[in-house]
């Protein structure tokens, strides 16, 4: 097995390099001293970050649209997803598998279709481009992640703990709230982070649903790339990578959670 395990390690390294390459060049170019999209070799500068925070469109896209929408839809998705996960794991339904597929539907339907369908409804109601349609759509995209993570957390909790609490005089509701829920917190937090990032990084749905006042950061970066902007878009992209990286690292290191979906 040893000869082949070396080959396997080389392959794994190359695949990881392939996965990380586009992120790495974006971060490097964001420190470029010139307006060309070149990787700086001798001189580094923070000019493009200064320009990013100086430009209202970028700043507002991040602080007034992307972050609030991601916070709102992440919280909403965590609430709905946790309730739905408890429902799936606890109510011994015969139709559980069917319910579970129904609940996972937003993962199965391409999000451009969800975006297009939401846009058509919103446009007919005359509310296209408003922030809450974006929040609604992003919540929908986030809930399946929360259900997966919280459902797995719930299954992993020893049912004897709850039994013991009931035997010691708790009602079943008290046992759930005081014993199970605290143990479930890391999983809920991790589900919330996933739902936040799904909203923060989404383009497919926002492309259809976002309007002039609700241009998220990725959408703004997209239109800037289209019209060939300067490395400010690299700085904007690098900041997004930073946010996602820190959040995933938090989830993995701080909460000691296994990153699996």
């Amino acid at each position: 097995m040893h000869g082949s395990s070396t080959a396997l390690r080389v392959l794994a390294t190359l695949v990881f390099a392939f996965l990380l390459a586009p992120l790495l060049v974006v971060v490097l170019v964001s420190f470029s001293p010139t307006p060309a999209f070149r990787i700086p070799t001798t001189e580094f500068s923070l000019d493009w970050y200064r320009k990013f925070f100086g430009m209202a469109q970028f700043r507002d896209g991040l602080f007034l649209v992307s972050l609030p929408v991601a916070l709102a839809s992440g919280s909403l998705a965590t609430l709905l997803g946790t309730l739905a996960a408890v429902y799936l794991v606890r109510s011994g339904l015969a139709s559980r598998a069917a319910m579970e597929s129904f609940f996972m539907l937003p993962l199965l339907i391409p999000s451009i279709l969800l975006g297009a369908a939401l846009y058509l409804v919103a446009a007919r109601m005359g509310v296209a481009g408003q922030a809450w349609t974006l929040v609604l759509g992003h919540t929908l995209l986030g809930v399946p992640y929360v259900i997966r993570v919280v459902g797995a957390g719930l299954v992993a909790i020893d049912p004897r703990l709850e039994e013991a609490a009931v035997n010691l005089g708790c009602t079943s509701r008290q046992a759930f709230l005081r014993v199970v829920l605290p143990l479930l917190k890391p999983a809920m937090f991790s589900g919330a982070i996933f739902a936040f990032i799904v909203s923060f990084s989404d383009v497919n749905l926002a492309l259809f649903v976002a309007g002039p006042g609700t241009t998220t950061l990725p959408i703004h970066v997209f239109s800037q790339i289209f019209w060939e902007g300067d490395p400010t878009i690299a700085a904007a992209s690098a900041l997004q990578i930073l946010v996602v990286g820190v959040l995933i690292l938090t989830m993995q290191r701080l909460l000691k959670l296994r990153l699996s979906l």
Binding site: V26, D202, V221, I225, A234
Partner: peptide, 25 residues
């Protein structure tokens, strides 16, 4: 643990950012 981080982190970054990275490469 490291491998999962290197797998999940790029997965969660916006596809716009990644397309931009490929354009640079």
């Amino acid at each position: 643990g490291i491998g999962l981080f290197l797998l999940v982190m790029p997965m969660m970054v916006s596809t716009v950012v990644r397309a931009f990275g490929w354009m640079i490469i």
